[in-house]
Amino acid sequence: MLDHLLSSHTLGSLQLKNRVVMAPLTRSRAEGNIPNEMMAAYYASRAGAGLIISEGTSPSFNGLGYPRIPGAFTPEMLHGWQQVTDAVHRQGGTIFLQLMHTGRVSHPDNLWTGGRVLAPSSVEMTETKMYVDGKGEQDIPLAQEMNLEDITFAVKEYAMAAKVAIDAGFDGVELHAANGYLLEQFIHPKTNLRTDQFGGTIENRLRFVRDVAEATVAAVGAERVGMRISPYGTFGELGAFPGILDTYRRLAEIAKKVGLVYLHLVDHESMGAPSVPEEMKTMLRETFPGSFILSGGYNAQHAERDLAAGKGDLVAFGRPFIANPDLVERFRQGAQLAIPDQSTFYTPGPEGYLTYPKITDQA
């Protein structure tokens, strides 16, 4: 029985029909970085989730680090996303837009003309490559250190992109402060070597994230803003660091003060990273009073156990949603899950994107 997982949940002013969250999944189908009809069909077919969190979407022309990821900073992007939200809402779904500025995890050839690879500090990436259409895997160049004007402008970009999201019909936005991207680059002492008010102490390293959260809340309202975090994650050549528990305790306190509607914790143990210690999970749960989303290698039974134990309020599923658009119905029926084809995760076109059938299609 999945009594907890399939029960409703109140998220701010929203009533979610179940506690299954579709995790943000980069799929690289936005040709020209503009959402399209194919993406609308993809998300609408997964509207059985209590909450859909979109793929990472750049708030800035400087944040389009990967090929074919969508943005949220032009009228064309707004209109493209309207197709998606309209399609999801017609199916009774709820959807947040994840705002993801890639920062140093980028390549100039994936940016628009005039775009720059920016970061808190110029710290070389030595192990990571970046795919560029027509060129394949490329070395990632050294990012430019952001000056105070760059930082101020980036904060405004997040707030403006949140407004674009709400105008496009999204129910809210998620600030992506995980997986080694720009917000986490400011948090982490390996990638933030600054000596001004945005670096050094815990409070200073969290200042950019706090400023972004406050500006976004001011733009669209606290009930419409969540945040994703990944302490102990290794994406972007990061990992654990001294003082990590105190850092994330303070971040949770900031999220509480700003009034964020949820914290979304990622545990990448299933993908080879160190597990997030129970001490960290418990601390975050006790410090932050809003909804708490668990994520990382869950199946339905594991999710039910953790929800029943009060470890979280919702559980996000990533790869299972790729091959199972009707994942919630499969959970409900105890049906077998299809296995996704990893070779089509990031390729253009409908193959491996719109080609996975629902149970009703198979029948």
Rank of each mutant, 00 (worst) to 15 (best):
V21N: 07
E329N: 13
M125E: 09
S122Q: 09
R305N: 13
Q336K: 15
D341L: 12
I166R: 05
P320N: 11
N110G: 04
G114C: 08
W81P: 11
D341A: 12
A273L: 00
S60I: 09
E223M: 05
D109A: 15
T287V: 01
S122Y: 06
R27A: 03
L78M: 15
S13W: 03
Y42D: 04
K163E: 14
R210Y: 08
E76A: 15
G180Q: 06
Y346R: 04
G169K: 12
I52T: 07
A215S: 14
G136F: 10
F288Y: 15
L314P: 02
N324D: 13
I244N: 00
V164C: 10
K358L: 12
E37P: 01
E31A: 14
Q336C: 03
F61P: 06
Q333R: 15
V20E: 08
Y346F: 13
T234M: 14
E237A: 07
N62C: 14
I254T: 10
F96N: 01
Y356K: 03
Y232L: 01
G93S: 06
I229H: 11
A162H: 12
E329V: 06
K190M: 00
V164W: 04
N18H: 08
Q82D: 11
I244Q: 00
L265R: 03
S60F: 10
L307E: 07
S7P: 08
I34C: 06
S8H: 11
V315I: 12
T344D: 10
A161Y: 13
P35Y: 01
K257Q: 13
E55K: 05
L314W: 04
L6N: 04
A168E: 02
A252S: 14
R285F: 05
S45Q: 14
L260R: 10
V328A: 08
E286M: 01
Q362W: 08
G32V: 06
T74R: 11
S122I: 04
A338F: 09
L238A: 08
R249A: 00
